[in-house]
Design a protein around this nucleic acid. Structure first.
Lengths: 139, 139
DNA sequence: GTGAATGCAAACTCTTTGCATGACT
DNA sequence: AGTCATGCAAAGAGTTTGCATTCAC
């Protein structure tokens, strides 16, 4: 699969090597967030010889170039996911019991956020919402 | 200053010692979030002999007992602040350039969040919103 | 061939844990 | 004395950096 996101993410910056290609290819297929270690392990499991450091370097680069959003869900690790594909972006609900993470999106929430963003006086570039609780299986 | 929050936070669980007293007293005076290291350094600067480990242990305990909210703003460290004092709770805007953190609150945002929380099907216990951008000084 | 990207290992930072000491009952 | 919190130091986990090598053009 070669999407517009994949091509843009590969093209940005300098020449992509094996690691960058592998990470972009994996993330391009992803619908929700992954940790650096998860990405590393999946690539290794798939037979790729990428190093963990290269995964981190690629993630850092793609984040700075705006292709990835960093997400912190409260467990001390950072997750990454492709930014707004198709103009939509989502947020996350985390089950504090089993650790499950699910995405959701809501227009009214986005509207409320935009309103607040204007009021802050900041030039707000992005936002992040995390809901915590118990999923239907755990509660 | 001895507020209801302070008393409750001290009373919960077992007997509070020097460290717990110092941390609760400092956080009780705080309006916005602090990292464990900031708390440790302030207490040390104030002449207290608390250990960093005790600060972490106290923060962990107070969080589990619901007196503190953990907050992750994207720099890899966890911040802590007293939960909903006076029934209000706030969220945070972070300046990605200078690192400044400011609180804000907005009723319409809270309403939108409550709506979404119901839709998820989760028993949502809490939520967190972070806005990122440039503050007026930096943009 | 040149310069950038890569992989490994070491370094770093934040956080947690083990254990002996100290405080309060 | 007995019990629990504390402080220090060591251990862990996640992430970053240094450096020699490999890869792409």
């Amino acid at each position: 699969m070669t999407t517009a996101w994949n091509e843009a993410a590969l093209g940005a910056g300098r020449q992509p090597g094996r690691a960058r290609r592998a990470v972009v290819e994996l993330l391009g297929r992803q619908s929700c967030c992954l940790t650096a270690l998860e990405i590393f392990e999946r690539l290794r499991a798939a037979g790729s010889g990428v190093g963990l450091a290269s995964v981190y370097r690629t993630l850092d680069q793609l984040s700075r170039d705006g292709f990835l959003q960093k997400i912190e869900l409260g467990d001390g690790t950072t997750r990454y996911e492709p930014t707004e594909r198709g103009g939509h972006h989502h947020h996350h609900v985390v089950c504090e019991t089993c650790g499950k993470v699910e995405p959701f999106e809501d227009d009214r929430l986005e509207q409320a956020l935009r309103r607040v963003e204007r009021q802050t006086g900041y030039a707000v570039a992005g936002h992040e919402v995390v809901l915590r609780g118990s999923c239907t299986d755990c509660s």
